[in-house]
């Protein structure tokens, strides 16, 4: 954690709301991104991010300065989003609903990969949404934040071996989803071609 953050935290602990607002400004994007990837919609993500900062504000006195402030915030956000998902039980994913799904294997940007790498990356987003919430959190922390398995275990209150197994299962599920979709596309293509044949 940098000195500025530490200074802002100290000020916030002494009741300076502007100092805490500066921390919010600094970390709004990483927290929002985590919530957005976890929940899948902008409004829910914004509400969850606001709630995360409010919880951080209320519990700032319990924050351990030895830990990274960003890690602490992301941990609050991840737990909150997992709880929300459990409550809402949003586990709906059908590959058929995303007919344009196609991730290119070359490094060259194509219209499809441009969609994937753009803000409106519906397909990758849909894939991530198909995972169960704790697996999704582990994948997001690993690939969007570059967290190590140890860091993820600390943030999600899991053992390192549980994180490894969750990541393995999530990767397998994501890869299987792509394989299934490709096979369906091939079958669909053959069906479309049959009248001509």
């Amino acid at each position: 954690m940098n000195n500025l953050d530490q200074e802002l935290i100290t000020k916030a602990l002494h009741g300076d709301d502007d100092a805490f607002s500066m921390l919010v400004e600094t970390y709004q994007n990483p927290v929002y991104n985590l919530c957005y990837r976890m929940l899948g919609e902008n409004t829910a993500a914004e509400d969850a991010a606001q709630e995360t900062f409010w919880r951080a504000y209320q519990n700032l006195k319990f924050y351990d300065p030895q830990r990274s402030f960003a890690t602490w915030l992301l941990s609050i956000a991840a737990h909150h989003c997992i709880d929300l998902q459990r409550k809402r039980r949003l586990q709906i994913f059908e590959m058929d609903e995303y007919p344009d799904f196609d991730i290119q294997d070359t490094g060259t940007p194509s219209p499809e990969s441009a969609v994937i790498t753009g803000d409106d990356n519906r397909e990758l987003h849909a894939l991530i949404q198909s995972l169960n919430p704790p697996d999704r959190a582990a994948v997001i922390l690993k690939y969007w934040y570059g967290c190590s398995e140890e860091e993820i275990s600390e943030m999600l209150s899991l053992t390192v071996s549980a994180v490894k197994s969750r990541l393995h299962r999530a990767r397998r599920q994501l890869a299987d989803a792509i394989t299934t979709h490709k096979e369906e596309q091939v079958k669909g293509g053959l069906r479309h071609e049959s009248p001509a044949l």
């Binding site: 709004q28 994007n29 927290v31 991104n33 991730i103």
Partner: peptide, 11 residues
């Protein structure tokens, strides 16, 4: 590859 190239959503 897509995970590693996916952008961060901005608030």
């Amino acid at each position: 590859r897509s995970l590693k190239s996916a952008p961060q959503a901005a608030a």
